[in-house]
Amino acid sequence: MSLQPDDRSPNRRAARPRGWLRAAIVASMALAFVAAAIGFVGFLSQLRGVETNPPRNADGIVVLTGGSSRVSDAMELLAAGYGQRLLISGVHPTNDASDISRSLPDSQRLLSCCVDLDRSAVNTRSNAAETRRWARERGFKSLIVVTSNYHMPRAIVELSHAMPDVTLIPFSVVGDRWRDEPWWTSGATFRLLLSEYAKYVAAEVRVRLADVGLDLTSDLGEPALRRATTAQAN
């Protein structure tokens, strides 16, 4: 009489599906990790390490607040004639032009004649909505976008989705910390990049879904629109 276990026993048959399920889960997690790593590398490849002047002038300039030297760099571009007017988007509600002029005393003339302040934007998506209103009011068809290099990919996603008919020219601000040390040697910078990459992916997914008519969120106070894909959608 054989004492070997019967492969056809209920316990053995039940174990096999569980084993395949575990293998499938592990394989899926490994593929997701590889895809995320490849995407992160692609995200990093979009980040500029040095500041370069815009290749051409534009109708206007918009700077998204939140990082060091963004506003001062935008003012320099305005002073150099790269745009007719500047929108500073995301200004704190309690701040006004005098607060900015104190930090940029050499820009008083420009602040009084050629700078508009947006105090309602609270994130990148609302930055895009307010910039769209500003550009439409003035008939601008091209904008220089000023923000930090790590924030630029997400900013372009949001702005191009909000204004598919406006030409966007990126001007990436490179902070001192980015210049002084490689990002992979700083835990804080690495965490910042991971966080920004996650937000960038989320923005890309939301925009792509909206392009095929799955815009399930309201458009920042404007009526929600379920739009089908058009030739202009980005």
Results as ranks from 00 to 15, higher is better:
residue 88 I to R: 00
residue 78 L to V: 07
residue 173 V to S: 02
residue 227 R to A: 12
residue 150 Y to G: 12
residue 44 L to W: 02
residue 145 V to M: 00
residue 99 D to L: 06
residue 45 S to P: 06
residue 229 T to N: 07
residue 62 V to I: 09
residue 230 T to L: 01
residue 18 R to G: 15
residue 46 Q to N: 05
residue 84 Q to H: 12
residue 61 I to Y: 03
residue 158 E to I: 06
residue 231 A to R: 13
residue 78 L to R: 03
residue 96 D to R: 09
residue 145 V to T: 02
residue 200 Y to R: 08
residue 103 S to M: 12
residue 142 S to D: 09
residue 73 D to I: 03
residue 30 A to H: 01
residue 110 L to G: 12
residue 137 E to S: 14
residue 159 L to R: 02
residue 20 W to Y: 15
residue 48 R to Q: 15
residue 168 L to V: 02
residue 228 A to H: 12
residue 96 D to Q: 03
residue 65 T to D: 05
residue 122 V to G: 04
residue 116 D to W: 02
residue 14 A to H: 10
residue 234 N to K: 11
residue 132 R to N: 06
residue 72 S to Y: 02
residue 102 R to H: 14
residue 99 D to M: 06
residue 61 I to P: 01
residue 14 A to K: 09
residue 104 L to Q: 14
residue 161 H to I: 06
residue 26 V to M: 07
residue 55 P to C: 13
residue 171 F to R: 00
residue 130 E to D: 13
residue 69 S to V: 15
residue 99 D to R: 04
residue 190 F to L: 15
residue 142 S to Y: 03
residue 58 A to Q: 03
residue 178 W to S: 14
residue 189 T to W: 09
residue 48 R to W: 06
residue 176 D to S: 14
residue 124 T to L: 03
residue 169 I to S: 00
residue 178 W to D: 08
residue 211 D to F: 03
residue 23 A to S: 01
residue 217 T to K: 12
residue 114 C to I: 01
residue 26 V to N: 03
residue 77 L to W: 01
residue 56 R to E: 12
residue 36 A to C: 10
residue 133 R to N: 02
residue 149 N to C: 11
residue 102 R to P: 03
residue 17 P to E: 03
residue 84 Q to W: 01
residue 193 L to R: 07
residue 126 S to G: 08
residue 154 R to Q: 04
residue 47 L to C: 04
residue 74 A to G: 09
residue 36 A to D: 04
residue 191 R to G: 09
residue 46 Q to R: 11
residue 221 G to I: 07
residue 151 H to E: 09
residue 8 R to V: 10
residue 71 V to W: 05
residue 92 H to L: 13
residue 207 V to P: 05
residue 48 R to V: 14
residue 75 M to T: 03
